[in-house]
Nucleic acid binder design. Structure first.
Lengths: 330, 330
DNA sequence: TTGTACGCGTTATCAA
DNA sequence: TTGATAACGCGTACAA
């Protein structure tokens, strides 16, 4: 590989002059700059970013931890949106990003995770959909060795921010709309996400408020964001209720198909607004959120943390709507 | 950050000794090794991989170029499988990987692409679904500056291998099966992928063979792997044919839904075997391929190229089947 | 304006 | 068995 020394020799100047000619053009005379550029051209010289990182005092490298399990089969669409946004932002901020899948960490100790990240000089993280199961990632957050933004999790400290839609409000709105669109809703089945999660609890609170406002009978089951579990819950309890509200579109699809197989037709509501819903051609209310925007904002917030701001809780907008096939494929 | 120098001081030895104690344990006495390990423990020392790369003669870094456009909305599922497999393999081979989206290169010149890759000391690439549009990536292949494995493209040279299913055979089989499952098929609409692509040409050849064998009337249109185009083609020509064979599942879904909207029911066939098909609950023959395995094999082949083998063409297995919702969600 | 010398964190060579 | 030193490729303070 051709290095800065080769360029210096070829141009007949010192390597520091080459460096200046390339990075601080104003510190070098026009003619030496041209000599240097000519040599760069002829040799096909490309600066080694690894060496630059090593030489510079402070370099920010962002680790992106994407969740592809989450007990469901089809969040690929969401993860891809997250990654694309983060990649675009990394270009904007001139920061390097490294991609990880959360499953990589499943069989690693806290020590191993810590070592893996630090060996790559990663000093900040964006963690998407942190699942409760991975205690070691929680420890990473608690230890405060990294600047972190959590997407769709709820936790804050001096170096950690989080970002999400207002889950309480969104769940309230989509459920309320679905209730009002239909007549005589008395008994509601709520298929929640994971048990004990902060976000799931917020949503359940919304459902309980609605329970009082509409004098509903409310049955709560946990589907763990898994379409198969949602299907089984629906097969078991679906016939006794007037409506099914789900904590994710995936579970809503599971519930709808289960109802169809049972020969029943009942209102259903989902959450997320993923395109997959459009492909399924099922028609239910859902909470649509902009995953790309959420990830972009997460990146902005991370840069803000690096600049010294304290961890905070950020809310992004949502919209209650239906996902249509013909809109999706445009 | 704590460096090897800090460890050396703490342990009371030279840093070269620390390096040996950690990497070539046998070259160091047991007691100094223990001293070093104790210091490492106490200080929480983690070696800096950037510095290691700089210091070592030869380091392999693999760039993964994933295609998220491809004129279609929903190949996220496939890309995720590719990435997961490559990440797993990178662990196995102890090689670093860097992820790119092909769209990043859209507005870059060949020179810029080359610089971006080389600045990160990337010396080999896996390119998934290289689209004809990006001439600059083609140039990257032709220049032979990188060891490359192409997934689902057809090109070979001294440093480039490619891997795919046997597109001719697969297309032949799935179309033949669909023809034989139905009676009096005379006129067939083939919605191909991109015009001029090698793989599309192979598949069209298969269709032409079938045309002669079954004395079919064959109408070929290009849907560019886009479900909307497939829909429009079907709306225009669907009523005049007995069967529609598509170059991708996505286009098959577009065709099926178009037929449904036209109030017609005709046999359709797809290609890829993606899970999305199961979620759509449409029931058509398709070619199922193992994306994870394909990507794993691509990585193996890349390592083989690095070890000195010549570029070759690798075929992986496929299976003609139908994708069922209940199988998908298990 | 240009060049010398040092530091970044690590491995490798060679002498002690 | 250990340690001093050079080298990897680059940026930069400082001296010329």
């Amino acid at each position: 590989m051709v290095s800065i020394n080769d360029v210096a020799k070829r141009a007949g100047v010192a390597k520091s002059t080459v460096s200046k000619a390339l990075n601080n053009k104003e510190l070098v005379s026009k003619e030496t700059r041209l000599k240097v550029e000519k040599a760069v051209e002829e040799l096909g010289y490309v600066p080694n970013k690894l060496a630059v990182s090593l030489s510079k005092k402070k370099i920010n490298r962002v680790g992106l931890i994407v969740d592809i399990r989450h007990n469901s089969q089809f969040v690929d669409e969401i993860s891809m949106q997250y990654l694309m946004a983060a990649f675009d932002k990394s270009k904007e901020y001139q920061v390097e990003v490294v991609t990880f899948f959360s499953s990589q960490f499943d069989d690693m100790s806290y020590y191993e995770i810590n070592t893996l990240l630090k060996s790559q000089r990663i000093n900040c993280l964006i963690i998407y959909h942190l699942s409760i199961e991975n205690q070691n990632l929680y420890k990473v957050i608690e230890e405060k060795d990294f600047y972190i933004v959590l997407v769709d999790s709820y936790m804050i400290n001096g170096k950690t921010s989080c970002i999400a839609v207002n889950h309480y409000k969104a769940q309230y709105e989509v459920a309320k709309k679905t209730i009002e669109e239909n007549e005589k809703i008395n008994k509601v089945l709520y298929i929640a996400g994971g048990e004990g999660g902060h976000i799931t609890n917020e949503r359940i609170t919304a459902m309980k408020i609605l329970q009082h406002e509409y004098k509903l009978e409310l049955l709560i089951k946990h589907g763990d964001f898994n379409e198969l579990k949602a299907r089984e819950i629906t097969l078991e309890f679906g016939k006794d209720v007037d409506m099914i509200i789900c904590g994710s579109d995936l579970m809503a699809i599971g519930a709808e198909y289960a109802l169809r197989d049972m020969g029943i037709n009942k209102p259903v509501a989902g959450f997320d607004g993923i395109k997959l819903t459009g492909y399924s051609q099922l028609d239910f209310n859902t909470v649509k959120q902009d995953f790309y925007l959420k990830s972009s904002s997460a990146f902005d917030e991370l840069m803000s943390l690096l600049a010294g701001s304290k961890g905070k809780h950020i809310i992004i907008d949502h919209e209650v709507c239906r996902i249509k096939y013909l809109d999706i494929i445009q």
